[in-house]
Design a binder for these strands. Structure first.
Lengths: 201, 201
DNA sequence: ATCAACACGTGACTC
DNA sequence: TGAGTCACGTGTTGA
């Protein structure tokens, strides 16, 4: 709102020189410099204003909003951006690369943060594979939080997000074994695709 | 790296006073003040350093990386946080409220940004509902990008993320009609759940 | 020579 | 009082 006059503005030697300059007709250049000074001052004010405005909105956005200094706030911001970027990437993973691989494949991994388990399996397609998978998951005490499936050219790829029952002792191994059986049953039986291709997601 | 000595540090009147103070035994207070001054100076340096470090990492994180000034960068940061927060919320929508409603229900909506269509339907459960749905979606020329399903107490709720074929003229209406038929078939036929409950995702 | 962006040191304020 | 944070005006540098 107001600017507090600083020491050298009030009584410093350089300021004294300025005063002398003001009384001197030769002062044109210095007067210009002073004028430029005030525009400079205001420009810097605008700059700070913009930055602080963004920081303020950041503070309002982040759920962390309560009592933090500016630096820590920015730290929170980078944390959020990283975290959200990562989860977004995970969520999109299904959409961007949802095609069955040629070789049979089974990957099971667990998210350290959420505890959620993600399973991805590619194998030959067959009509009953969904039911088999549901049975296998039930046997493994795995609750399906989310599922995606894609079949193309007689091959199918399934993505499963799963949560295991708390008292489950077989753990990831049990889940992996159950799914492996479903896969193997699919590839070993030459009777794949006797019926029409039902699933084309 | 290094601080350029400013005018008043080198030759200002106040600095002269400081020198006098140094030679004077009565200068204790001023010496303390000077000492405090340097810690203050350094403290402020650290503060700036932290802030700028966070800003730098932000710059490296954001895909926007291309030469932007500090304020605009922060603006981009808030944009990203808002955007990612919104998409994250949309993605989690399925997980948080994935329970069938008591009354039959069909909602179809289209995301303005991605063009993706989200359909949510609740109805009585029956074993063949998945196949019926797949047929209906095929007829509506809808490509399923993602699907979630939950059944509890003989009721089932399905969430579908779908993309229509470009040349599709029936549009949202056609998709809605197709899904409605699946729902109605499920509720009208009293033969729901004659077989064991297969799907419990 | 103008402009915009930056880092710096300093006064004020708070806990 | 002292350690920490903030806004300010300024000097400096690259387009």
């Amino acid at each position: 709102m107001f600017s507090i006059p600083s020491l050298y503005e009030l009584g410093s030697c350089s300021d004294t020189y300025d005063v002398v300059g003001m009384l001197n007709p030769r002062s044109m250049a210095e007067a210009k410099a002073v004028a430029a000074g005030i525009t400079h001052k205001e420009a810097e004010r605008h700059r700070r204003k913009r930055i602080n405005a963004h920081i303020a909105t950041l503070k309002s956005i982040l759920p962390n909003t309560i009592k933090k200094d500016k630096a820590s706030l920015l730290g929170e911001a980078v944390r959020r951006v990283k975290e959200l970027k990562k989860t977004a990437a995970e969520h999109n993973e299904g959409e961007v690369n949802d095609y069955p691989s040629e070789a049979d494949e089974l990957k099971v991994s667990q998210c350290q943060i959420t505890g959620l388990i993600k399973a991805a399996l590619s194998c030959d397609d067959r009509p009953e594979i969904i039911l088999d998978m549901i049975e296998a998951l039930k046997a493994a005490e795995a609750k399906v939080v989310r599922a995606e499936m894609a079949t193309v050219g007689g091959r199918t790829k399934t993505l499963l997000w799963v949560r295991l029952a708390p008292q489950n002792d077989a753990g990831l191994g049990g889940l992996r074994r159950a799914l492996k059986m479903v896969m193997d049953k699919s590839t070993s039986s030459g009777q794949a695709c006797k019926r029409a291709r039902y699933y084309h997601l």
